[in-house]
Design a protein around this nucleic acid. Sequence first.
DNA 1: GAGTTTGAAACT
DNA 2: CAGTTTCAAACTC
Length: 499
Amino acid sequence: MNELEDQEYSYKRDISEGSLVPLHHTHESPRMANLISHGMHSVPGYSRMEESLREDDYTTYRILPQLTCDPLPPVAHFSSASYPEYLLAQSSHYQHVLGQPYSSWPSQEAFHYGMSSGEICRAVTSISSDGADVYSLEGYSTHQGFRHHDRNQPHALLVSPHDQKLPDDTSNICQMLQPVQVVCDVTGGGQVVMLNHCGPDQIPHSLMTDLNTVSLPNPSEQSCPTEDHSPTGKASDAGHSEKFASTGLLQTHKTSAGVTFNLAPGPYASQLHQALCPTQIVELEEEGQTKGRRRVKWEKSKRPCNCTKSQCLKLYCECFANGDVCNNCKCLNCYNNTEHNLERSQAIKACLDRNPGAFRPKIGSRKQGNVKGCHTKGCNCKRSGCLKNYCECYEAKIMCTSTCKCVGCRNYEESPSKKSSERDRPDFSIYYPTRSPLVCITPDVVEATCGCLLAQAEEAEKEGNTSAHAERMILEEFGQCLTQIVRSIFKSTSVQFNE
DNA sequence: GAGTTTGAAACT
DNA sequence: CAGTTTCAAACTC
């Protein structure tokens, strides 16, 4: 088997215990109580809930998948992202080699439940009372048994001590210790992201119907000489936790029973979730099947960077900004790889210190009427008219909005310049978000109008036009601005506007 | 492919 | 927070 084949992953069709869905209930949690009262049978694929232990005021519930009789629905799908490497600063899972079922699976595969997991999500979030939208829970388990650890650590979950058993039989790899992280986004329609530290061998086949992933790093770049391939993966995970803890991105906790678990702080969990947005997901090509295994090939679509001075450790680097390690790039002196984990982690931390939302997608979630969402910060273009790819809004195929601070913007609905631009642009028909209607002439509108006029004056000057021609251009621009303002006002009041 | 332009990110 | 510098992508020739 060559190295390329080593990159391919095989997936076992069957596991006896399935993926983990840690749920927790405290007596203070009416949401969980409500969930229980309505029965967890509504959770697809999970039909049996057991009360496993009772300690202090807390009760741990365990949901065991019954894959044989309650398969997960066909809509279920996973996606994965490489961003979690930021969270856990581990070497890549892409080193996993077929035929070594006990080799560690040191990095994280982010498995995103696109299934109707609202119930699961609500259950998970019910452990916390801090009102956050995104929760990140991490621990180790074979039997899905997490329990609340500390009242002061609402996110902290601990695995039951009995889950530390390791298998005697190599064929029974699902009995292995299964480190799992659950990220739950309440605002995302009840999405649950599970980060399996273990190999995809342990993913139920029924969950593999629509598997997506991000780019596959080159094994040579991903290799980590210090990586531990011990059968249990415990040493690796512990090491990774330490590395991670050193970056401040992950807290490592230990139970009285000696069981360790990791906890990613909420903000990073949020970014992790957002890193799973479809824009960063590429196709996974299924190559074929062998007995009980799926063999897949990961396809890379990430655009290579050409950084020369940033060491690919600043947001100038697209790979870094997207949460990817550089792979097949043309960059020089690159540190955005697992060989420079320390530098990379420090750089990530520095970016997050500067801007906690640094790794969040710039294109926010869709809003009313918008097909593709809007730029969260808005652009600041001055000379491109927002009709070139310099403009982040234009590049993302979205209209500029009132959030933008651009000057001389043409990237709005029905802009004459934009119309001609659209003709040269493929797939433009798929986006028709509307510019936020300006229902009155606010100072912002005045400022924007003046900006347009100034831009037009600059353009006239640049073209060496006569003052009369420049004047005419500016007046025409003013007319366009007025037309736009009036049209927006009429549109917002649903009154027909005839030019 | 080299040089220029552009605007985001980083820095002061 | 504003102004300046750095940077890499987009663009032009």
